[in-house]
Design a protein around this nucleic acid. Structure first.
Length: 109
DNA sequence: TCCGTGACGCGAT
DNA sequence: CATCGCGCCACGG
């Protein structure tokens, strides 16, 4: 079995779960995918996959991590969804999406 | 197979 | 608030 695919699949699922008008962070997505230290992996997945709500993923404190045109593009897309900023960062207190906790083997099944 | 490279995160300076 | 350094992880040459 290729564990890379399952990890990637969990990351993709977490990313896709972020609704319109909400945002999440690389680290939070990683945690939700049960890969708590794989924030950079999340970034790679975002960069190498198509059809994802990529603009809804920002840095830990609401910062857009892209550069140049991409930076502008992400900001415009977020604002178009109603996401507000304070300076150059998203107001996380208002828009951060609370991701579902990763599924653990339940004690009482 | 080894090594450099990121759309990262966080504490320290 | 701006930078730096170090830890993390999978990928590509």
């Amino acid at each position: 079995m290729d564990t890379r695919l399952t990890s990637r699949a969990r990351i993709l699922r977490a990313i896709r779960s972020v609704p319109r008008g909400k945002v999440s962070t690389y680290g939070a997505i990683a945690k939700a995918a049960r890969l708590p230290r794989a924030a950079r992996l999340v970034a790679r997945v975002l960069h190498t996959s198509l059809g994802l709500p990529w603009h809804r993923i920002v840095g830990a404190s609401g910062q857009i991590k892209l550069r140049g045109d991409q930076f502008i593009e992400q900001r415009l897309r977020l604002e178009a969804e109603g996401v507000t900023f304070r300076g150059s960062r998203v107001r996380m207190a208002l828009h951060e999406f609370q991701l579902a906790k990763p599924r653990l083997p339940t004690p009482s099944s």
